[in-house]
Amino acid sequence: MSSWAIIQQSLPLFQKGFFITLKLAALGILGAIVVGSICSLIQYFKLPLLNPLVTIYTEIARNTPLLIQLFFLYYAFPQLGLRLTASQCGIVGLIFLGGSYMAAGFTGGFEGISSSQLEAGQAIGLSRWQLARYVVLPQGLALSVPALAANIIFLIKETSIFTVIAIPELTNTALDLIGMYYHTNEYLVVLVVAYAIILIPLSLILTYLERRVRYGTFGN
């Protein structure tokens, strides 16, 4: 069989994996953005009680591998009576990891606002909340857009680790096919191309966003 025929035969399976990757990534990323923005607001306002909890959470999530986080969810949690499907584990794991990255991204944006902007706001008598509402949030969110884009790319790539709990996403599809039919080169090529289709446009957007922020034209 020609390489091309092998690739063509595998395409339906890869297509399935492609959409599973996209779906899980999308859900995980959305959840991560929600968790991350809540955490960064808690950190920004230094809310008592919650702030130290957020610090502990982000340090744990950022400093341990997703693979172990997934093993915990998938293999160890059922021992505690918490049983999730593999896909649910994947999404929860991605949110757990991604939330901490998103929080850092937003916080970085808030911290990137020049102190003269804050002082200008204080000088016209804005309260802490008003300052956040009218100065910190709009400017900080704009500044954190590149970090957001970078995190999205990072989290999409991390879905490849879902293969360890047998979620049939792209990487798992390729490894399964290799295991069954041994057409290693063909399947790996399709796999790399599939990721490239998702990630190259995103990485171009990221480059563009970074440029815009660097030249300070955001929000104008």
Partner: peptide, 14 residues
């Protein structure tokens, strides 16, 4: 662009 898992398998197999 290529996830590290995939890089590992690329080199491992190829």
């Amino acid at each position: 662009i290529v996830p590290t898992v995939v890089l590992l398998f690329l080199f491992y197999y190829i």
